[in-house]
Design a protein around this nucleic acid. Structure first.
Lengths: 354, 354
DNA sequence: TTGTATGCGTTATCAT
DNA sequence: ATGATAACGCATACAA
């Protein structure tokens, strides 16, 4: 706190060279020739003195903050519950570290502060930005795109040339629902992971509908409910589905977290899974495998998405542009026991090694 | 990207005043007298030009980065699974925002990079740091403490005067286990949330032991297993407990996440909860309430802990010191159904409103 | 091979 | 009430 800062000047003096030399050596400037001896001396002195370049000074002159923003357009209680975000962030931090960068994590209320993250960019606090889960109508995004600020969105926005990484939510949902249909279900309800003003929920709903139509099954709006990212919404929507006395034998919940809430409502009603109601989720969050019964779901490579988004962004920042602006990662249907697969209960079967 | 930056100089010229005036006005310097007219003009021009002060320049001269670090000493897969961290981070971001600061989130491998966060501090990239879940033997922490860098740890370290916010893990664990004992259980197993080289797991284990001793029950080392933060570890440890053919009627798992894994092992063995084995968790993570059966657990105010840690840190940074260096938040035993309370299955009972 | 001079955008200390 | 000037710590083009 009090001890005065060690500057490159101090290192220079102690090593008997100029500040320039210190800078050159420490930054390992390529085209430069400096005697191995001096080079070593500078290194030694720097380490001895505990010299660490001041980030602000470097940023000011290099016009690079060496940190990137990760903004999630979610309210607090969503961030708390959403297990998917963890993985996105973990993947991002990891990748960012490999490139000697840092991650500034922002949480923006999607209702009110749509342009809040503009300040981050304008203040040059970040060199680029990852935006998780955008809305259709995000205004700030337009501005930022026009200004050419490096952005990668995790998710998808129609008619936009922004860089993005996503999965094919529609196809994946189709696969999940087709699985149900193949098992003989004809009345299949749906609880979305969130409001369809967000892209992913909208696409997953579309996939549900397409699967129905492909199989010649009627789409019934009454069988569709909108979740809101968290457990409670799943519980509430499932309960409402049950309360309405509609007949259905399966339900597609387009988020594992929401599905966990839905499951509670089903059990509370005294119904069994999968015997009375088959359940299929989406995301393959870590806990899905440990649910009762283990949840059949769509695996979304969350960590890899965070990681891929970072790599894309870093290319965008350093190279100015990038060959492939839209990356789509693969999903996979993971069949477990919530749709009626046989339940095995022998001692030696191990869940972790699946 | 390409459009040249708007500086305070530009604003000054456009408004027909000096840079000093611009700075004064925009920063609302108290003791200064500037005509309401110029003041307004500066504001207007600044907004019109879209002027945003450059963070690096401000940081360089003010010696404040206006951002704080949140470092979690965990490996990637822990961050992915640990629902508790979400809440800590959410609480922190929220509070930090209220003070116009940002959060740089770091993930440090506790094995290798113990001193990695030193660089953040030394480069003045952050003004202070929150450290979640430290180990006994963290070396970097010592250094940082000596240098007087503002740190708040979430958790606790013995014989340290560092600022911290925590709960009384030992007392809470005692309460949880006492609950089991009161219900008539005499053989109670324990799966910790993590290795006892971390403080919280160690304290929770101690509480378990104390409760046993208080009740005159024997402590049996064979009944104790160490989890590792995630679901899988809970599954594995519970399975090993079951495989060893030990007799016990209840298990205290000192983390809800780990407990969820343990639950899966119990069910897989064909045992019922709570009829065959009573289960009590720790943390009261959001999903605890939605587990099957709803999990009896200790509520830990995670969001508030993140929030309190930030407030403490901000005081430390701005005021240099703080009156109360150690904050202990209250926990609460939440009795649900995993220990044998009656199960109600009427239509109108709603979980969310508990 | 090494050193000198200049600028990055702000804030703050002085004069005026 | 306002304006010139000096730091802040670093990188770099250019000179030696």
């Amino acid at each position: 706190m009090s001890a005065k800062r060690v500057t490159s000047q101090d290192v220079a003096i102690a090593a008997g060279v100029s500040r320039t030399t210190v800078s050159m050596v420490l930054n390992n400037v390529p085209g430069i020739q400096i005697s191995e001896e001096t080079r070593q001396r500078v290194f030694d002195v720097a380490r001895e003195l505990g010299y660490v370049p001041e980030a602000a000074a470097q940023a000011l002159v290099s016009r690079r903050s060496q940190s990137i923003g990760f903004v999630m357009a979610r309210q607090v209680h969503h961030v708390i519950t959403d297990a998917f975000l963890n993985s996105l962030i973990a993947g991002s931090i990891q990748t960012v570290h490999d490139h000697n960068l840092r991650l500034i994590v922002e949480m923006i209320d999607p209702e009110h502060q749509q342009e809040a993250y503009l300040r981050l960019a304008r203040a040059r606090r970040i060199d680029g930005m990852i935006l998780a889960g955008p809305r259709f109508d995000d205004q700030g995004l337009k501005v930022i795109e026009e200004e050419g600020f490096p952005v990668v969105i995790i998710g998808h926005i129609d008619q936009s040339n922004l860089c993005s990484v996503d999965v094919d939510n529609c196809a994946a949902a189709r696969e999940a629902v087709a699985h149900l249909i193949q098992l003989g279900h004809k009345r299949i309800a749906c609880v979305t992971n969130a409001s369809p003003i967000y892209m992913a929920p909208a696409m997953r709903l579309r996939g549900y509908r397409q699967a129905l139509e492909t199989a010649g099954l009627a789409f019934d709006q009454n069988l569709v409910r909108f979740g809101d990212y968290d457990l409670e919404s799943g519980y509430i929507q499932m309960k409402s589905l049950l309360d309405d006395g509609l007949s259905f034998t399966a339900v597609f919940v387009s988020s594992d977290v929401v599905a966990l809430g839905a499951k509670a409502a089903i059990y509370q009603r005294g119904l069994r899974i999968p015997q009375d109601i088959a359940l299929v989720g989406f995301d393959d969050v870590p806990m899905a495998r440990y649910m009762e019964p283990p949840l059949t779901t769509i695996r979304v490579p969350a960590v890899q998405m965070g990681s891929a988004a970072c790599r894309l962004l870093i290319d965008l920042i350093t190279k100015g542009d990038v060959a492939k602006r839209k990356i789509t990662l693969e999903t996979e249907l993971i069949v477990r026991e919530s749709c009626g697969a046989k339940r095995v209960r022998t001692t030696n079967q191990s869940i972790p090694n699946q």
